[in-house]
Structures are given as structure tokens and as C-alpha cells.
Design a protein around this nucleic acid. Sequence first.
RNA 1: GGGCGAGUGGCGGAACGGCAGACGCGCCGGCCUUAGGAGCCGGUGUCGCAAGACGUGCGAGUUCGAAUCUCGCCUCGCCCACCA
Length: 831
Amino acid sequence: MTETTTRTPRGERYDPAAFEAKWQQRWEADGIYAARDDDPRPKRFDLTMYPYPSGDLHIGHWYAMTGPDIVARMHRMQGYNVMFPMGFDGFGLPAENAAIDRNIHPATWTYSNIDTMRRQMRLMGASFDWAREVVTCDPSYYRWQQWLFLKLYEAGLAYKAVGAVDWCPKDKVVLAREQVLGTDRRCWRCGTQVEKRDLEQWYFRITNYSDELLDFDGLDYPEPIKAMQTNWIGRSEGAEIDFATEPDDVEAIRVFTTRPDTVFGATFMVLAPEHPLVSVLTTDERRDAVTAYVADARRATEIDRLSTDREKTGVFIGAYAINPMTNERIPIWIADYVLPGYGTGAIMAVPAHDERDYEFAQQFDLPIRYVVAPAAGELPQGQALVEHTEDEVLIDSGEFSGMPASEAIGAITRALEERSQGSFAVTYRQRDWVAGRQRYWGTPIPIVYCDEHGAQPVPEDQLPVVLPTDVDFAPTGVSPLQSHALFLNATCPVCGAAARRETDTMDTFVDSSWYFLRYCSPAFEDGPFDPARVDAWMPIHLYTGGSEHAVMHLLYFRFFTKALRDLGLVSVDEPTQKLRNQGQILGADHNRMSKSRGNVQAPDELVARYGSDSVRAFLMFIGPWDQGGPWNPTGIDGIQRWLGRVWNAALPAGGAVADIGHEAEELTRALRRATHTTIDAVATDYEGLRFNTAISKLMELTNAIIRAREAGLAGSDAYAEAVEVLLKLMAPVTPHVAEELWERRGGAYSIHQQPWPVADPSLAASDTLELPVQVDGKLRDRLVVTPDTPPAEIEAMALASEHVQRYLNGRAPSKVIQIPGRLVNVVTPRD
RNA sequence: GGGCGAGUGGCGGAACGGCAGACGCGCCGGCCUUAGGAGCCGGUGUCGCAAGACGUGCGAGUUCGAAUCUCGCCUCGCCCACCA
């Protein structure tokens, strides 16, 4: 044969621009991705975090969204009624800043960005169910958020209180503790260093749920997220101990300690400079020094107190406390290394067993008394004994001397309890969620203040409290709502007198704490969501998004779900069963993509050049999805070539079928085997979000198909089956080209509504297998055997191998290990 | 300082404790072309003509067998950090 089939067929080439838009429009028009509430098939709620409408969809969004899109698409083909919705996190500061910078209304800016991003998501070919779209800045959404807020308020889970809060001086807004990042405490949005301010603020009582939030039992979350949330909540078990004071015995000082076993070693006390008892206890002769130190500490709070390796500072306040176990008088100091917000803001200092106390004692020449020691070992010189040893026992601790330290924790606490001087206690690092924001572009908090009746909830029938649009965005530092007379003026729901409306708006993280519930019934008018629909769809089966939300959104949405459960509004304990984080796509310079760095990769130009399918497949192919990495377009040509080869293989040049005679049967079997082994392998990879290896398997099947075509099988049934299976398996990743080729081959519309292929194990099975033969674990030969070859025969064949003989050197093997179907290892005798 | 994660060819990366480097990129050679930034075929861890030896950050250990498990280091990344 001179006519070769290897030549590119004369027909059309793969040209995504010719058909991608066509299919996007048709899918949209036909609503093939809509989830139906009345569909009897099993429901699956696959969800990816909705974006903030910042302007443009960048390549990182494509990376994040293509993965779950693949999974949702496969689930649909597998017969699930899949809900895969999308929405927009519409409220937020950037919109307001844009308003100030460019004199454009935040709503205009936001909705225009949403339009752009919605269009870009369609360009991706993402299978979102747009009929369920949720936009949080729409009154039809935030109306119900206000309703939920009031439910939480009535239940005491939302409250207003004065406290030291983190304040961003640039954005002029308070932040939740979770939204302050890094050692140098910067605002999560703008990066400015935050300050502490004493302000009256709205809070959510998330700490009511600290213990429950620590329970990940039955939850499939990535370990790092569990670790971060656990550390964030920071549960510590120990004891609270009361130390009576001298000279006036005004009030006992309560401390929290995780080491009640060391109370005999408490040789002084330290209070936070902010501690309320400081001014009461300070003696007259120490007052000047103390006042000066407190003022210093207050000033230094923001920056210096954060530094861990700074020299310890503090002052003696002139007063004494009584160690409840030793009855010794111990001096009371204040020092800024004791934090006002943790525990009781006061500590018993045990310099012998705490590094910080040790350092402080050294600094100020205070006594150091070891009260725990290794039974056999020696006490350390010149440092605190912090490390625990198994045999450590108490020393110099009265009746408790000789008791193992692990036992003494309980024994001493109980002893203190009997004397009403202490009790077992648990402390958390987690604080309540600061929920209010002094900005305009957010959900108004539905509260009014009456001179007579104080804070009153806005009656339900007056919701929503609509955000006015005619406000002045001059950057005054206070919310524009504060100068909007019409908004500000309200009437008291109790007495009808003139009242003032709350001008704080809600943190945008409130919006994202329940949006997934709204998706279940996005048009519901009688409440935030239809309980029946929520019962039917929740919990989310697979939730995906960035891990940067570990202790923000991912903690808040768990809290909200639990709080709403306790209000009787939902029946699930957790919002999602399974969470996965995609990695982050960095700029080519290995930095976070940002407009200011100029390292942002826009997807649109790539799509224009390669098509959506290539961009999707390439992003999913570059590595493990949870890993991310710097953007590097090298290699997208390989994906383009692959799709071109698929195109040519699916539409082979007609006519020429080579005469391949007796080889045909074996080649056909090999092709069927490749086809049927790929089906489950790809499905398993998709399910496990291993898109890179899934695509490599699709490439291998493609290569097998091309080999078959080169061998002249292009007209065979096995060939047609292989191509059809390949197209179905590819459909989730490259939906457009799969649909186009499916149609051109005469398949029924739509490939995305076809059943997922089913592997036939008998066709997937191989009739021979190649066994590696090792000598002492090193590969020396291979055997080709049938799967039913008896082990004894395999052993004989292995020993007969000349390669094996060479290493045996005439000796008998000491052992032969066979892993059936995997390998043979011949172990030589040890000398 | 604490917690978590990762170190594999020139590059992105594969590999239930069992054939290290799948699949791609790049590169080299060839075919076909007026041409090639198209397509197809072959090669490509290192050293070596070869037989073979050596190879998964470093060092030990467990095992018949370790990229994979354990211990100790080194480097990088992320999170937390005077949290009592």
C-alpha cells in the first residue's frame, strides 16, 4: 500500500473557534445543566465558592472552577440530578473604593463586573445552573440575611458590646480577628497594619460553638484545614485558680493555667496592664511607675507587644497575693507579655516551668523554684524545665511531692476546688466574630435605637432595610449612611417615637455564610430558603475553594449552619461533607497574581488563541489540582496537539482500510482492552480530583486509538467504540470538542446527557501479563505469563532465567517471594 | 518558637511498600513537504562503545524489597505565634 493513513486527513482541522460559542449558546438555551427539584434521580449538590466580582475572571478562577465543573459534569452523566450553581459575593469594600476613586456608584461597578464575569464563565463552558444564581447585594437576598440576623439576635447569638477590636486605619473599618493576617497584623483586604480600638461593636457568638467546631468526626476535610481551624480555636484545658490579695484583700485575682501541677512554684503574679484590678491594687508609692507603664503599654500595644524576642518589661505594683498552696506572699507585677484578651488576663508566674516567666524572673531578679523534676534526672541549669518526661514527679510541693506530674494536675485542682480556690477550666483563643462594618456597601443591620427602648429589631414586615443609593461617597472616614437623613431616621417599633437607625453594615462574610442554602430555592419569597428544598439538597456533597479561607469563611459557614440548626431552620449539622482546596496559580514570577505586579494572566487571550477546551484541559493537566503553581504556558501546545489528534482520530479519512489479516484480532483486543481499562480509571481520577492523571490516561487512550488507525482498524466496531468512549470521558474536561465530534459522528444530542460508559471487566482483562523478576529487590529480568500460571511454574521460570542464575552464582535461593500478578523476587543467601 | 505541607530528568509532573521517570513540554534524528511555528515515525535520567553500574534533598533504620514507612538533619512554602 502506498496510500498512507498516517497523513493528516484532507478534511477540516480542529478549529475550536468554529464551534465553541455555538455550543455554549445551545446548552444555555436548552438548559441542559439545570437542576430540577422534582427530578427523581438521586440529588447531588456540587459547589464551588462564588467569586467576589472584582472585575475580570483571571486564570486562577478558571483553575478553581474547571475542576468542580468536571466533577459535576461526570456526575450528571452518571445519572445524578446535579445542582452546580454559581453566584456573586456582591458586597464588599473594593466596590466602595471604586466609588470614591472613580466616582461610580458601587452598585454600578459591581453589577457591571458581574456581567463581565458571567460572560467569561460562559466562555469557559462551565456547566453552572444560572437559573439559581444568587447575587448577595440584591435586596431579595439581603432581605433574608437581615431576617436571619434578627433570628440570631433574638437567640442571643448576635449581640452588641464594647471591646478592643482590630481597626484598619486605611479602610476605616473594624475587622474580625480572623481577618487580621500575619505577625505584623495586616488587614486581609488592603494589607494595612491594623490598630486596636475600644469600640462598641456587633458580634456573633461563634464561641458558643467552639467545642462543636473542633469536632471533625465524619467530615472529609483536608488535614491542613482541620489543623488550622483547630489551632485557631485553640482549646486549652487547665484550671482557674484564685489568688487572694494583700494588703486590702480587695478581690481575689483569678488566673488561668494549663499547669496547675506547678502552683507550688508560683513565686509571683503578673497581670496584663489593662487588667481591671491594677488600679485598685497598686500602692501609692508605686502608682506613678505603674501609670507610666500602663500608658506605655497602651501605646506600644500595636507593634512592640507582638515581638516575641523583645526583652521582657514590667513593673511591680506594690501589692502582694497569697499562693493558695504555699500561703506565701508573692509580689504582683504587671507586664505586657500577659495579654488582656486571653484567659483571665492574669497569670501565676512559675519561672521554673515556663520560659516567659523564667525570662521575666531573670530580668527582675525574682525567685525561681523548681517543683517538677525527672525522677532520676537533674534539674536544668539556667533555664526553665518545660519539656515533659515520663517519670517526672513533683518536688518541693508539700503533700503532693513525689506524685507524678500528670496525676498532680487533677489532684491539685481538686484540692483547690475543695477549698473553693480553683476549678477545672477550659479556655479558647477564638474570640467572637466581630460582625459589623462601618461602611456603606453591605447589608444594613436591621436595628433601630430608641431613646426610651434602646436597640430594637426592625419588624419582619419592614424588611428589607434597603440600602439607599443616593449617598455621598466622599472619603470622610465614616459610612455615608451616617449622613443620610432619610435612612437614619426611623421610628421605634415599641413606642413609635423617633428613633435612629443602625448604620453599621454586615461583614461580607455573613453573606457567604448561608448563600449555599439560598441556592436550594433562590426565588423563595416566604423565608431565606424553602426548608423542604434545603432538606432535599443539603448537605453539599463536594465543596471546593481556596484554602486561604481556612479560618474565615470555612469557619463561619460551619458556625452559621450550626446556629441555624439550633434555631430550627435547617436539619444538618455541617454545611458540607467533603471539602477540597485547589492550589493557587501564581504569576510567572512566582508571586501572587496582582494587577499592581503586572503578572496577571488573562484567560481571554488564551481562549482566543487556543479555545476554551485547550485552556481548561491545560490548566487541569499541569499538575495536581490541589497544588497549583506558577503560571507557565509552556505545554499548552501539547494539549492543542492532543485535541487535534483526537479530532483526526474521531473523523478518520474515509476509505482506506489496510489489509491486516490475522493481526486484526489481537489489535482489536488490545484496543478494546485500552478502552475498557480507561473508563473506570478516569472516573476514579475525576472523583478524586486527580485531573492531571485522568488527562494523561485520556491521552494514552488517544494514542492507542491512533495506533489502531495506523494499523488499519479505523473502520472497525472496536474503533468506533473506543472513539465514543474517549469522547464521553473527555466531555467533562473539554465539553465543546466532545460535543462537536459527537454530533459529527452522528451521536444524539447532547453528549453531556449521555450515560457514562460502563467498563466490561472481561474486555478490560489482559490475557498475558509481564512479571518483573528481581534478585534481592533489583530488577533483573521479566517473565511473560498468562494470569493463571501456577506460582510453582512462575518460580521455576524465574530461577531458570540466565539473568537470575548469574546473580545466584550456583547457589540455591534462600527465599523466593511472589506477589501474585505483581512480581517475583529471588532472595540470595546471606553470607 | 509551634503546627502543617513539599523536595523525583533540562521543565511540569507519574508511581496500592513491588519494573523509578507514566503523560506531556523541550531537545535530537528521520519521513512528508516549494516551505513548516502543520502532520507522522523514532530517540531522549546519568556514566559507559557495550555488558553493566549508579540514580528520587542529606544521613541512619525497618523490610526479601523504600521515592513511598520510622528517626535525625538540610532547604523551600503556608498557617499560627509572649495564648499562660
